[in-house]
């Protein structure tokens, strides 16, 4: 036996490298494929579960406000309305606040304060949904009902168009409380993304603008935002996705009433809170199937929102001539 020459050793090592390369590539590809398998499996299983309800109620399920387990008549309109209304409310409150916090952390805060505030906002995200719910129901709602709600009804209740939104008995719980708590819950997610993308703006770009005499706001408005808008939209998308499907906090404070009301102070229902409340107690195939159909609708709404956001992102990047 002759000891393998240096060249043979090198070739052997290279061959092993190629083999391991292929193995590693196949493994990563397999698990990337798993992601696709999971989403398809979710869709298929929801469709199968919802099929009896779809067959019985047809498209009318979408706009029927009926929800009666006794007569086995079900419709999704109330829950869909509640889901959309609370999420929109959460976005109206949450987007400006998140942007403000991200702006403060990246541009205004003194260096020593950046980390603590960043961590504090992230901790807001770490608090479980159920804690928000307990706090909302037992602490926030009573205070809100006693102090804020009567004032809002007195002062805004008579306004021509929006007045109706603020009518109703001061119960504390309802659509508005749910929307506000959702906003607080999604703020850290949107802030984190915005902050991260603001921070990747090359300092040279900002310094050039400052050098031209721009104010901090102008730098943000004309340099940071254009550079990062893709990321900002991504962050908002993330927040909206979470708001739409958020379950426990909403279940605590929305009031769980199967009714649509023009007032933000009235109780309502969302798809997720209906599922959380009724799924384990649902008796009979049609009841369960209708609940799964609700889940299917929620899944499609989230799907739609995300697809739209993605398309927007693609258009934005295409216009800028960047590669994704």
């Amino acid at each position: 036996m002759v000891a393998p020459s240096g060249a043979a050793q090198t070739i052997g090592r290279m061959q092993r490298g190629v083999l391991l390369d292929r193995l590693f590539r196949v493994a990563t590809r397999f698990f990337a494929g798993m992601v696709l398998v999971v989403i398809i499996a979710i869709m298929v299983s929801l469709l199968i579960g919802a099929w009896p309800a779809i067959q019985k109620f047809g498209a009318g399920f979408l706009w029927s406000t009926e929800w009666n387990p006794v007569t086995n008549q079900f419709g999704a309109a109330v829950a869909i309305f509640g889901t959309l209304a609370t999420s929109v409310l959460a976005m109206i409150i949450g987007i400006p606040v998140s942007f403000g916090i991200a702006l403060f952390i990246t541009e205004l805060s003194p260096r020593w304060l950046k980390r603590p505030i960043g961590i504090a906002v992230e901790l807001l995200a770490a608090i479980p949904s159920i804690i928000y719910g307990m706090w909302g129901l037992f602490v926030f709602a009573p205070l809100f009902a006693d102090h804020a709600q009567p004032w809002l009804t007195d002062h805004l209740g008579d306004w021509p168009v929006i007045g109706n939104l603020f009518q109703g008995p001061p119960m504390g719980i309802g659509m508005f409380t749910a929307g506000l708590i959702l906003a607080i819950m999604v703020i850290p997610f949107m802030t984190a993304v915005m902050r991260d993308v603001f921070e990747i703006v090359p300092p040279v770009l900002k310094e050039s603008a400052y050098g031209l005499g721009a104010t901090t706001w102008e730098v943000v408005r004309h340099v940071v935002l254009p550079y990062t808008k893709v990321g900002v939209v991504g962050g908002v998308m993330l927040g909206l996705g979470r708001a739409l499907g958020e379950t426990m906090a909403v279940t605590f404070v929305i009031g769980n009433a199967h009714s649509i009301s023009s007032s933000l102070f009235m109780p309502g229902n969302t798809i997720s809170s209906t599922l959380a409340n009724e799924f384990t107690e649902a008796v009979g195939q049609m009841y369960t199937s209708s609940l799964i159909a609700l889940g299917l609708i929620l899944f499609f709404i989230t799907f739609l929102v995300l697809a739209l956001a993605k398309l927007m992102l693609l258009r934005l990047t295409a216009r800028e001539g960047q590669r994704t």
């Binding site: 499996a41 979710i42 998308m237 997720s272 799924f279 799964i292 989230t302 799907f303």
Partner: peptide, 18 residues
Amino acid sequence: DILLSAPSIILGVFIYEV
């Protein structure tokens, strides 16, 4: 991205069924 934002309760329904 969709799975990331997929409501966790939907995942619960899915696992329930499967």
